[in-house]
Amino acid sequence: MSQILKMVAQRFALGFLTLFIVSLIIFLGIELLPGDIAEEILGQSATPETVAAFRKELGLDVPAHIRYFDWLWGMLQGDMGRSLANKREISELIGLRFGNTLFLAVTAAAISVPLALTLGVLAALYRHSFYDRAVNVVTLSSISFPEFFVAYILIFLVSVTFPIFPSIANISDATPFWDKVYKVLLPALTLTLVVVAHMMRMTRAAIINLLASPYIEMANLKGLSRARVIVKHALPNALAPIINVVVINLAYLIVGVVVVEVVFVYPGLGQLMVDSVSKRDLPVVQASAMIFAGTYVLLNLLADILSILTNPRLLHPR
C-alpha cells in the first residue's frame, strides 16, 4: 500500500511541477521575443513617451523574476491584474465566463461520455459487423470535420431550416437554469459530435485489446455466461483504459470549446481569449491561457492517478 501512496505522491509532485513550469512559460514567453514587447504591440508610430508609459503599465520596468512571482502570487489569490483594453479587473472578466465555459463543457460531457462509451463498447462487442464498419466510417469522417463546420451545419438544420434552437447562445447571470440548458444545447451538441467520435474509437480499441487477452479466453472456456465474462472479468480490467479515454477527451473538450464559443457567440472564456488575442491584451491572454492549461494539466494528472489506483498489480503488491 505504501508503494501506491508513493506513486500517487510522485504523480502529484510531477503534476504541480508541470503547472509551475507551464506558468513560467506562459508568463515569461514575452522575454523570448527579440526586441521590446511594448514597441511590438504599440507599433512603430508610437512616441518614446507612450512606449515608456506602456512599459510601466505592463510592469516591464520591474525585473522579470519579481514580476513573475508577483503575478503567480496574485493568480493564487485570484488577483490577475487589469486588462489593457478596458482597464477592468481581469478576475471580474474571467470569473463569470469561466463558469459559463465549465457549464458548456459539463453539459457536453454529460451527453457525450455515456453515449461514446455505450457506442464504443457495442462496436467492440460486435466487431466486424455491419454496425461496426458503419460506425468506423462515420466516426472517421466526423473527427475530420472542423468544429465550425459541424456547428454551422447544426445551425443550418435546427435553427434556420427548422427553427428549434437559437443560433446564438447569449446567456447571462440572470438566465434561469433551464433556459440556460436550452440555449447551451446546440453548442453542447456540436462539441458532443466532435468528441464522441474520438472517445468511442478509443473505447473500442481499448475493449478489443482487452477482449483479446488470454484470461478472457479462459473465462469463456470456463463456460461462464457472456454477461459474466464482461462484468466480472473484462470490466475490472477495463476501468483503467476507459478512465484514461474519458479524461483525455474531457481535456480535449475544454480546448475544443474555444471555436464553438466563437461560433455561437457564447460568453465563455474561449471567446474572451480569442478577442483578447486580436487586441493583444496580454494580461488577459496570459490569465486565460493559465486557466485552460491548468485545467488540462489537472485532468491529465487525474487520469494518471486513477489508472494507478485501479491497477490490481499495484493495489496488491507482492
Binding site: 513550469i21 514567453g29 481535456a251 493583444r280 496580454l282 491561457a289 492549461a293
Partner: peptide, 22 residues
Amino acid sequence: VDVLMAIPALIFGLLVLTIVGT
C-alpha cells in the same frame, strides 16, 4: 517535449500569436 505537450496546442498557439503578432 513533455512540457510543451502539457499545454493544449490551440491555447499555446493563441498565447504565442499574441506575443509575436499574427
